[in-house]
Amino acid sequence: MADAEAAKSLSGLLNGIAQKVYYNNSEITEQLLKRELFPELPQDAFTALHDKMRGLIKSIATADMDHAQLEAFLTAQTRKQGSGGVNAEQAAALSRFWKSQRVRVREICSCVSIQRLQSQSQRSNKRSLVKGLMSSFSSFLSQDSEFVCLEFDEARVNQMLKKMADIQESIDRIVHRT
């Protein structure tokens, strides 16, 4: 029973971190998570657990790990348990969490990247070169995901945004025909 309760608390912590970091839920705080999920844990131990889980989620999300990549990553993390890794229960919780949240987190990360790119291009003045960094997660042609970072000047940013709008219009036309 204690193991089930610990797994439930860890799952709640992972979901709470995602709510705060990716879904911008300002009501979720580190203090709330500690009070609701780990009230008996000393503050320094909770802070270490919170920071470790947040860092692992960030690593997993940044790489947009598929199932095989995630399993390899978590296996490596369990092997270095004594030096900042995770135990088997934590690895299982992270695996369940990512399986349920991957698509949503990827969509949020992609949208945030495009919004940053658009706002950066809108803030620039015409004489300076705008450099937009766009982080995109692509998996169009295969199951393997890749992290892509592109740098554009203002003209290329506008050109890319126009092409993306054209693609969206084409998709909309196809979808509405059927």
Rank of each mutant, 00 (worst) to 15 (best):
Gly55Ser: 01
Asp144Arg: 14
Ser110Met: 09
Ala45Pro: 05
Ile57Phe: 06
Val112Phe: 05
Val130Met: 10
Asp172Leu: 08
Glu30Met: 14
Gly85Ser: 11
Ala68His: 13
Gly55Met: 03
Glu36Val: 05
Arg116Gly: 05
Glu89Asp: 03
Ser83Ala: 12
Ser11Gln: 10
Ala7Phe: 06
Ile28Phe: 02
Met65Ser: 05
Ser9His: 07
Ala2Val: 15
Ser136Glu: 10
Gln81Tyr: 07
Lys162Met: 07
Phe38Ser: 06
Gln120Trp: 13
Lys34Cys: 06
Arg127His: 13
Leu14Ser: 00
Asn158Trp: 04
Ile171Arg: 08
Gln159Met: 15
Glu146His: 15
Leu141Glu: 14
Ser59Val: 08
Val130Thr: 13
His50Phe: 09
Asn125Thr: 08
Ser9Cys: 06
Gln31Ala: 10
Ala72Arg: 06
Arg123Tyr: 14
Asp144Cys: 10
Glu40Ser: 06
Met164Val: 09
Gln168Trp: 04
Met134Ile: 15
Gln101Met: 12
Glu151Asp: 11
Leu141Arg: 07
Lys162Gln: 13
Ile60Cys: 04
Ser124Ile: 03
Gln81Arg: 07
Leu141Ser: 07
Phe147Tyr: 13
Gln118Thr: 11
Lys52Met: 06
Glu154Gly: 10
Gln101Gly: 08
Asn15Thr: 04
Ser121Lys: 05
His67Phe: 10
Arg106Gly: 06
Glu71Val: 11
Gln43Ile: 09
Leu10Arg: 07
Ser83Asn: 07
Val175Leu: 04
Ile167Glu: 11
Ile57Val: 13
Gln120Met: 15
Phe38Gly: 03
Asp64Gln: 11
Gly85Leu: 00
Ile28Lys: 07
Lys58Asn: 05
Lys52Gln: 08
Lys80Pro: 04
Leu133Ala: 15
Tyr22Gly: 02
Ile57His: 03
Asp3His: 06
Val86Thr: 00
Gly12Tyr: 03
Asp66Gly: 02
Glu107Tyr: 13
Leu74Gln: 03
Ile28Trp: 04
Ala2Leu: 12
Val21His: 05
Phe46Pro: 00
Ala2Arg: 10
Glu40Ile: 08
Ala18Arg: 04
Val148Gln: 10
Phe137Ile: 12
Val105Met: 03
Phe137Ser: 11
